[in-house]
């Protein structure tokens, strides 16, 4: 990662925020100050309030984030490697804690509830917030058992109901016609793109409110990527979708809002087409135009 700002490479998110505030004027090319989009409270799915996160004793990985993510929209997170995109995403369903102990400051509200308050159960939270990973991760089970993994652990036992869930979710992800005849085959027999759609179906089967995608199409071929993107565009009618992507074109194609992150800070957050047409900061412009990354 080439450093665009002539700053030392190993700045913590907090130090970067301080340095960046000094050069704001110069960076904005004299444009007026940019405000993050705000939404009426019933349209806010996720809200960060002065949220900071650090792993163990290390300096902050995310520093003082405040923003609102709208309901039933696709929000894309872009930024160079190591800028904290994945940490940002994983803090929403508290998956960061599975990697190492974390320290939190501020609040993160999902559907109006602070997910880091002590009375929140991560098991409950993670049924509300589904997640799709970079590489398809079907469990070593049959296609059918993969889809009903979630419903089954939540106590749905009725065969008819499970069948219905499988059929509905597989139809939602456009996989039903392809696998209808072989639901009891092992999931590893599917192609990469099919596996990823199976994983999305598996996540949808528990009716989450929010879907997180951690570069969900980056390990797939162009055809499968197209299918997944198409699927997300359809799913946003029912779900709030947040994806991390390395692919600028993808962000431009499918997202409604776009977050540009750098060194654990959010530099720009606005409507996608606005950002891609007229980036506010030089840093954003250089990244979007592929001058570093």
């Amino acid at each position: 990662m080439s450093n665009q700002l002539n700053l030392p490479k190993s700045l913590s998110a907090k130090e970067f925020a301080e340095e960046f505030s000094k050069m704001r004027k110069e960076q904005t090319r004299g444009l007026e100050e940019l405000k993050f989009p705000t939404f009426p409270s019933q349209d806010v799915a996720i809200e960060f309030k002065n949220f900071s996160l650090s792993y163990g004793e290390a300096p902050e990985s995310l520093y003082n984030l405040s923003l609102q993510i709208p309901r039933n929209k696709i929000t894309a997170i872009i930024g160079p490697s190591g800028c904290g995109k994945s940490t940002f995403l994983r803090s929403i369903n508290r998956m960061n804690e599975e990697i190492s102990p974390v320290k939190i400051a501020g609040e993160l509200l999902v559907e109006g509830k602070n997910v880091y308050s002590p009375d929140v159960d991560v098991l409950q939270l993670r049924t509300q917030v589904g997640m799709i990973f970079q590489k398809p991760q079907p469990f070593p089970l049959s296609i059918y058992n993969n889809v009903i993994f979630g419903p089954k652990i939540h106590g749905i036992k009725s065969k008819a109901q499970l069948d219905e869930i499988v059929q509905k979710t597989l139809k939602d992800v456009g996989l039903w016609e392809e696998v209808e005849q072989r639901l009891n085959d092992h999931a590893y027999g599917l192609s990469g793109g099919q596996q990823q759609r199976l994983c999305i179906a598996r996540a949808l089967a528990v009716n989450p409110a929010i879907l997180l995608g951690d570069e969900p199409a980056s390990a797939l071929d162009p055809q499968s990527t197209y299918q997944i993107e198409d699927l997300f565009l359809k799913l946003k009618e029912k779900y709030t979708i947040v994806i991390v992507t390395h692919n600028m074109q993808q962000a431009a194609r499918i997202s409604d809002y776009c977050i540009f992150m750098y060194s654990g800070n959010i530099i720009e957050y606005r409507k996608t087409d606005e950002m891609f047409e007229n980036p506010h900061f030089r840093l954003t412009e250089n990244y979007i135009s592929g001058r570093y990354g």
Binding site: M95, V122, Q124, R126, F139, F149, R202, V206
Partner: peptide, 15 residues
Amino acid sequence: DLRVAAKAFGATRWE
């Protein structure tokens, strides 16, 4: 990765 994916579902250790 598989374990992490299951944890993202809120699966318990037994599950």
